[in-house]
Design a protein around this nucleic acid. Structure first.
Lengths: 191, 191
DNA sequence: CCGCCATGTCAACACTTGTTGGCCTACAGG
DNA sequence: CCTGTAGGCCAACAAGTGTTGACATGGCGG
């Protein structure tokens, strides 16, 4: 743990601080959205002074932007048999939402994009750069272009009602039931 | 137009003022969400003093609550042939979202419910009191209970990606294409 | 030893917010 | 005429915000 190239005592402590700020910021943005998240709150959670946040990120907006970076970690969809594609997609996203509770990036993005144009733009970019290519690998470019929007709409609708609105009938399903219920819907828009 | 019981010159002007406030409030809440909407902004839009808003609604939260009242105007679903149900549902909601631009109530509810627990609760209530019964009339209670959550998820996913996130492939579809694309997905969760 | 620079704290500024209380104005009833 | 009252405006308060600049501190190179 004293590796001089990464975390040893001689290592700059600014990196750890910056990471702590980012982690706290993601947590706050995910739980409260952009407006209700305060620099003071994030700083307190990271155990430092609010002015440090400004020094490292310059502005609340830039901190927000840094917190918005998201990797969907989509697998290679060309490798899955076509008839399993819907179940794989739904399953992957459920895992992604429910996986590491410390990884709030997805929630940050969705929750903020609804009231914040900057985040909405980021969402559109994430869609274009990650979802579209992954689907194109499995369906071909023109079919992907036709279906990707509808699939995003399904998956995001699921996330919306389950994790943000918490509609009881959607919350009460477990992973298997969720996949079983949504895969046919996704399959329907692929046709 | 001088009906003494409703709008004549002898009529209280407070009713008109209150209505103007509510209309402006809906517009602001729908466009900006709860936090970024200011009493001052609403008052300016309604052409009156901020303190008037307080006099009539007491508090920003109560004004918000008044703005959240939503009537989905769902038709009698028992009257539509089962195989047309998906298209009717999707079509109705598209009309509802796209209809009267002055009627922002639906957008207020959806946009706010994502970052505001009070609005989320209101959304769950609206779902339980309007969507569930309407579906129960067409599908019977137990089938409705099983499907309503999934249908809400589809419809809200559509609204989310089209009106809030504005994902290009979802925005570019017109009403007919939208219905044609989504009806099969809704039909899939009914099976 | 000295001095420098990165890391961090403290206190304050300027601004916006929801909210409040006092004042004004018009008009109906006597 | 006076008076009361409802509808409305103005100015201010207290709290919280993002942001800034002056100051501390501790370790490292000379």
């Amino acid at each position: 743990m004293t590796d001089p190239s990464e975390s040893g005592p001689g290592r700059r402590s600014s990196d750890r601080t910056k990471a702590a700020i980012l982690r706290a910021a993601r947590e706050h943005f995910a739980a409260r959205g952009y407006e209700r998240t305060t620099i003071r709150g994030v700083a307190a959670d990271a155990g430092i002074d609010p002015s440090m946040v400004m020094r490292y990120f310059g502005t609340k907006e830039r901190l927000f932007d840094a917190a918005l970076a998201v990797d969907l970690r989509l697998p290679d969809l060309a490798a899955v048999p076509p008839h399993e594609l819907p179940a794989v997609l739904v399953g992957h996203f459920v895992d992604r939402w429910e996986g590491d509770p410390a990884d709030d990036a997805l929630l940050v993005l969705l929750r903020s994009a609804v009231t914040n144009e900057q985040a909405a733009e980021r969402m559109r970019r994430t869609f274009a750069e990650q979802v579209l290519p992954a689907l194109a690998a499995a369906l071909g470019p023109e079919r992907a272009a036709r279906c990707a929007g509808l699939i995003a709409s399904q998956v995001l609708g699921l996330a919306l009602t389950r994790y943000l609105l918490r509609l009881p009938p959607v919350v009460s399903l477990d992973r298997a039931a969720l996949v079983a219920a949504y895969a046919p819907a996704v399959a329907a828009v692929l046709a």
